[in-house]
Design a protein around this nucleic acid. Structure first.
Lengths: 121, 121
DNA sequence: TTGTTATATAAGTATAATGTTATATAACAG
DNA sequence: CTGTTATATAACATTATACTTATATAACAA
């Protein structure tokens, strides 16, 4: 249940699985309903759904012979929490860039760039 | 480099690469600096960095013989845009749950559920 | 019961990912 | 130029992923 980030990111790294999630974002659906639009066997879809379940991205309930799937929040929450590290760092960099640009504007005709030497033939 | 989601999610699905990104969230670093804490060869780290670069998660500049790496925003932005689909659907589900709970509270000893079949919009 | 539908699991295979060591390239220091 | 440092690439082994078809299970319908 408490999926790890490896599993969750890997689950999202497949276009079929993302398409399944996009479908489930509209409405709950059974395995056959999910499989129908794909040029892929039912066992293949079943395995994709297992990957999504292990990743905390979907939940399944039992309803007779059917197993309707719906989105679960766990995976997205875990990913968001991890991405927060990157978001914070990126926004810090962005602020710093703003500051550098502001300084460049404030000091008009200074030395422009370091200009590193590149390869010789 | 408009990296695709497969590449970006797959890049994040590896603990070594996430650790590299977490390191770069603190500060820019060269390949050797990044490699040093890991029990892994330098070529392995170089390849991980290439994966991160292709994923739009880092940028590298040339500085003499060194190639300092820093975080890039592209990958995170792409992921966020895609996750928006799931977030929206999940919050819709959550609101619906809230509503169901509110109804259950409002009607104490009534018939248990209206149980309406959901259909597409 | 028997047949049908819905789904899961098994076995096999092809491709891709991740690591290794050895080597190539390019800049730097002398 | 020569040796050293920083990084990339090549070749290879190992393991994981993503399919396939065939079959198992379980509910439903007759």
């Amino acid at each position: 249940m408490t999926q790890n980030l490896d599993t969750t990111f890997a689950a999202l790294a497949d276009p079929t699985r993302r398409a399944l999630l996009a479908r489930l974002a509209r409405e709950e659906a059974t395995v056959m309903e999910l499989a129908q639009p794909f040029a892929m066997s039912q066992p293949a879809i079943s395995r994709h759904l297992k990957v999504l379940e292990d990743a905390g991205l979907i939940l399944r309930r039992v309803e007779g012979a059917k197993r309707p799937c719906r989105l679960a929040p766990g995976g997205v929450v875990a990913i968001d929490q991890w991405l927060a590290i990157l978001r914070e760092a990126l926004s810090r960099n962005y602020d710093r860039l703003d500051q550098v640009l502001a300084e460049m504007t404030a000091l008009p005709t200074s030395a422009p760039k370091p200009a590193s030497k590149r390869k010789a033939p």
